[in-house]
């Protein structure tokens, strides 16, 4: 019996310790961000690796998600004779939920894991220690640019994902099925509100960007400096990013979209 409680206690303590460590790490990143922005090309390089190289998977998945939404939406809506509402359905589901969430999940597994692996391997080969010895702050030199690269790319990628999805829905609805083009766009415009739907979606994706980037750099920096440790850190990045995205999404949705 005592064993169970001891285990629970150690679990709780290590959980709280981890949380505090992440928070302190976050504050450190923010503190050294100014220093890392002095050499902006470091951040631009990370924007390339996290953002530009994720473009292909984001665009292709966005297109396919939109195509599927179009097909399924038409299947259901035509039963009620309102297949023109397809545009509304595709746009709202993408802008509010699917865009930020699916782009976030893809971003975590495509870019977040790469960042963790990179920083973890730097730790294994003691590059981070070497930087410290040379009076180069590894947080300003390595961690902060990767963090900001993720934070900036994420909302842009989510917007591109939603745009491609809407294009996919349009392709299925208007081009293949033959829903009226004007009705498709005008019903969409009538139902989608800029502040309520678009800005809330952008805000969501920005929050996911901070969460994924923070988890990725933290897991890399915190990993056990062995081959096995790095592989575990990468797994943890993907798993905890996915959980964080879905949990944060639920919390934000319940605050943003309460049906007024």
């Amino acid at each position: 019996m005592g064993d169970v409680f001891r285990k629970l206690g150690s679990l709780a303590i290590s959980g709280v310790w981890q949380l505090g460590f992440i928070a302190r790490f976050f504050v450190l990143i923010l503190r050294y961000s100014g220093q890392s922005f002095m050499r902006l090309h470091l951040t631009i390089r990370e924007l390339y690796f996290s953002g530009v190289l994720s473009l292909l998977i984001i665009l292709v998945s966005g297109l396919f998600v939109g195509l599927v939404l179009g097909l399924q939406g038409y299947e259901i809506l035509q039963r009620y004779g309102s297949s023109e509402a397809m545009g509304t359905m595709v746009a709202l589901s993408l802008l509010r939920e699917l865009g930020p969430v699916v782009a976030g999940l893809l971003f975590a597994s495509r870019a977040g894991s790469a960042v963790t692996a990179e920083i973890g391997l730097m730790k294994v080969t003691e590059q981070l220690k070497a930087m410290d010895m040379m009076a180069v702050n590894p947080i300003a030199r390595v961690v902060a640019p990767r963090f900001w690269g993720g934070v900036v790319s994420m909302p842009l990628l989510a917007a591109l994902f939603s745009t491609m999805g809407i294009f996919g829905g349009w392709l299925i609805g208007v081009v293949f099925i033959g829903v009226d083009d004007g009705a498709f766009w005008s019903q969409m415009r009538a139902a989608v509100d800029f502040r309520y739907d678009v800005l809330n979606g952008v805000f969501k994706s920005a929050v996911f960007g901070v969460a994924v980037a923070l988890i990725a750099v933290f897991e890399g920096y915190d990993c056990v400096p062995t081959a096995e440790g790095v592989s575990r850190a990468i797994t943890r990045t993907v798993v905890s990013s996915a959980l964080a995205i879905l949990a944060l999404d639920f919390v934000m949705t319940s605050f943003m979209f309460r049906g007024l």
Partner: peptide, 21 residues
């Protein structure tokens, strides 16, 4: 190019998809 595409996507969402209430 990436940033410009992202901003263009946001503009598309704001102007073509949504109506500003």
């Amino acid at each position: 190019v990436f940033v410009a595409m992202g901003i263009a996507a946001l503009l598309f969402l704001a102007l073509k998809v949504a109506s500003i209430s």
